[in-house]
Amino acid sequence: MIGDIVERAVHLILNGDRELFGIIALSLQVSGSALIISSVLAIPLATIIGLSKFHLNSFLVNVMNTFMGLPPVVVGLILYILLSRNGVLGFLGLLYTPTAMIIAQSILAFPIVVSLCHTAIVGIDPVIKQAAEALGATRFQTALLVIREARYGILSAIIAALGRLMSEVGAILIVGGNIAGYTRVMTTTIAMEADKGNFEMAVALGLILLLISMVINLLLQRVQTKKMKSTAL
């Protein structure tokens, strides 16, 4: 049984099944776009929270920490309601499109990136900030320096978020609709094949997904060992 599944997976990859590659490509595209969008918004926010002294800061961090565990189905459902024809954002016509999936995943990744980046930024020794100010840096220049100092932590945050997005199924299934050749991604395909009783295919796809996750984790590990090296000295 296991041999069959692995054979199937290898066969699927080697034979260059066009549909499969389309599915993998869309998975990477949706999760990658969501990751970029959420990071671009989250890193500045995390930096502002980390470097400023607003009263709201600890509350915001709490909210972000809570939202890190946001169930994807709930996000999918709320977005579905907003994007459906009668919804507030129904006029955009985004339901069952890759864009809707990107929005859903951006929402999921955002708190993860904010929270982990915030941890990385507050972890930077305040002396660094003072040194930058003493050398005549503006607040913006100081913030850029602190981001650079926190780069390994920030990179880890981004990779962690990508891991979550690549494995996510609930939200994109609801707002994407798993339409063949349009909104079908790895995880929704696996769910569907399992439903159809097509276990071999489902597990084979699962293996490929696992392989991608493994590459992501290897990256994470490399970043972290590099970080440990640089802080140990």
Binding site: D125, V127, I128, A131, E133, A134, R148, E149
Partner: peptide, 17 residues
């Protein structure tokens, strides 16, 4: 003005680079 004066602290705050 701030750019014409500077201070070296006891812990200088080494940038990781």
């Amino acid at each position: 003005l701030k750019r014409r004066i500077t201070i070296v602290l006891p812990k200088i705050g080494v940038f990781n680079t």
